[in-house]
């Protein structure tokens, strides 16, 4: 066990190094001179002089050879300094930290909304299999998983913010501002979860122990609530990880439309303005979190399940 953890920990920096090196190399070959981008950003509508460009290149450390630039960046990143945004000249690490909260809030709200609606819909659909309720739920799930969230977002804004003036159209801070983006973002995962729960409830209802429970004379209500539900929800909870990844992807677009100051808006802006330090820092930040989460999970699973101690996990 100890040896396993040590081995995993040893590979961690290697992977991180690989990811950061690739992202660094990729961004270094990208078009455009960062020094000029900074100068242009500081003085929109004015053309930087060659002298100013040279000075800025030196200031940004771009006059050094590429490997030296990488070593410099990496050693600083290890100390928590991911450089400064070309655009805002703010530390990248601070921006990433700030932006994490709104994104977590939005995705958790959307996921919660999706679960709250998907669980009853999925169960209803499975219990009334073939009925009208089932048909409606299945249709809604199909529509939900195929509708582009951005088109839906515009519809919501026009209806609830502009026409009815019930809710704000953009912004972050109040609960009211969260309603529309959370709805727009929750649609796709809601559809996914509904289908998943319906399938697993149907699966479970066909199992032997359910038949036994029914044979014992338990009411259908009891059967579903006590026996089927717990087992049927496991796959849904298990799929939450994948769905969370989808949610983070979807949040990029929803945050942009609703001016939600999260990581998605940050990365879109950075990608469009070629704010390389931010893109680079973001990728590395995500990699660190994913790697740590992977490691912690594997270790936790090994502790929890003795069968796994002698084999590889996750195959």
């Amino acid at each position: 066990m100890g040896a396993y953890v040590v081995r995993r920990l040893a590979t961690l920096p290697l992977l991180l190094l690989g990811i950061s090196a690739v992202s660094f190399a990729l961004l270094s070959v990208a078009p455009g001179d960062p020094a000029e981008i900074v100068l242009h950003q500081r003085n929109p509508g004015q053309m930087p002089s060659p002298a100013a460009v040279t000075a800025m290149r030196a200031e940004l450390g771009l006059d050094a050879p590429l490997p030296a630039q990488y070593v410099r960046w990496m050693s600083r990143a290890l100390a928590g300094d991911m450089g400064r945004s070309y655009v805002t000249e703010q530390p990248v690490a601070a921006q990433l930290a700030r932006r994490t909260v709104p994104t977590v809030v939005l995705t958790v709200a959307a996921l919660g909304l999706a679960l709250v609606l998907a669980v009853p819909m999925g169960i209803l659909s499975a219990r009334r299999r073939g009925g009208a309720g089932d048909a409606i739920v299945r249709l809604a799930a199909l529509v939900g998983s195929a509708a582009p969230s951005y088109a839906l977002a515009f519809g919501l804004i026009i209806l609830f913010a502009v026409k009815l003036s019930w809710l704000p159209a953009v912004g972050y801070g109040s609960a009211a501002q969260m309603v529309l983006p959370a709805i727009a973002l929750s649609l796709a995962p809601m559809a996914q979860l509904t289908r998943l729960i319906r399938a697993s409830v149907l699966d479970v209802l066909g199992q032997d122990y359910i038949r036994t429970a029914r044979a014992k004379g338990l009411s259908e209500q009891m059967v579903v609530m006590k026996h089927a539900l717990r087992n049927a929800l496991l796959p849904a909870i298990g799929a939450t990880g994948v769905i969370l990844a989808h949610l983070l992807g979807g949040a990029v677009i929803i945050e942009t439309i609703f001016t939600w100051p999260g990581l998605g808006q940050l990365i879109v802006g950075a990608a469009l303005t070629r704010d390389y330090p931010v893109v680079q820092g973001f990728v590395t930040y995500l990699a660190v979190i994913v790697l740590l989460a992977n490691l912690a999970t594997d270790i936790a699973l090994r502790v929890a399940d003795p069968r796994l101690r002698y084999e590889r996990v996750g195959v």
Partner: peptide
């Protein structure tokens, strides 16, 4: 099933890791 458990745990850990990262960053 293993895969599901694993995913579940990843989600939990990620949910925990994010705020910690935030706190450190701030």
């Amino acid at each position: 099933e293993q895969e599901m458990l694993r995913r579940m745990a990843i989600t939990l850990v990620a949910a925990l890791a994010l705020p910690v990262a935030v706190a450190c960053g701030e």
